[in-house]
Nucleic acid binder design. Structure first.
Lengths: 153, 153
DNA sequence: AAAGATTGAATTATCAATCTTG
DNA sequence: CAAGATTGATAATTCAATCTTT
């Protein structure tokens, strides 16, 4: 009985390597952050787009696109980060249904603390792996594009 | 204020591409499985190593290494899959502390149903992306190796 | 005491239903 | 009714503590 047809053994191998690399790198970075007493990567993923957005704020929907999380999941995550005083919700003048999420100074300060740790972990792995990042990035981008086709756009 | 030093812009770009590709591909595959009324990818990740293991069984610890999940998380996942009748726990004759996890015929049958769906989704994305999988896999493997160094091995 | 595995309590994530405004 | 966002109930994940065997 075979579940792995010969045709795409290469695709499967690359996919498994992607899963392993993702898990290993994520664990490595999360551990580096935790060792410094810093919040998890998810907080960075929320705060960074806010920090660099014009006006330092984004609509919930726009923010959701930056984050690997369901809409509901984002609401909950934003709740927690808001409770920590790192961001605040604000009404949207033109559209009273919506809410802005705006980063607080304390949120920007946390980014400043997290980035060096994040960057060091990332840089260490990539440097020691000594790989050509250009074609790697290109291939991964093509994969992401194709995977998103016909999905939810 | 800059959080992204110029030195490793390439590493960061590749990392973000990896995150996006992982999220997009995972979502794509999970959706394909759900559309067919099949269990999530995590079940496949548990059942497949069991199916191909000699004796069609593995120790909990050995199985944990195949899965991106904490030891506790695996225990809970195995609970659920066992409740569905797809595997069973067995005592280990030589070591009464341990437990084997053995796949049931129904588990192998489920693999047979899941694989075509899994494979089709994967193949579609990789084929349409038209990338060279060999160097991609090599780079990702190197990244995973380096990320695991000094971690927990 | 350490290894192998599990459990209880707490955290986090998701689905369906809801509320409000356009 | 559709869009934007949130909430309640439910499910999954994790941490620390536990139990048994080596």
């Amino acid at each position: 009985m075979r579940y792995i047809p010969p045709v795409d053994e290469h695709a499967l191998g690359a996919w498994r390597a992607l899963l392993n690399a993702h898990a290993a790198l994520t664990a490595r970075i999360e551990r580096a952050l935790a060792d410094e007493g810093l919040p998890p990567l998810g907080w960075y993923d929320v705060l960074w787009p806010l920090h660099r957005a014009p006006g330092k704020r984004l609509r919930m929907n726009a923010l959701a696109e930056e984050v690997t999380l369901s809409r509901t999941g984002l609401v909950r995550l934003v709740d927690r980060i808001e409770r920590a005083g790192l961001l605040r919700r604000e009404p949207v003048p033109e559209d009273r249904r919506g809410a802005y999420v705006a980063i607080e100074p304390a949120g920007s300060e946390l980014l400043r603390q997290m980035w060096p740790v994040y960057e060091r972990a990332l840089d260490l792995v990539f440097t020691q792996a000594a790989i050509d990042t250009r074609p790697l990035r290109a291939s991964l981008q093509r994969l992401a594009e194709q995977a998103n086709l016909g999905y939810n756009v």
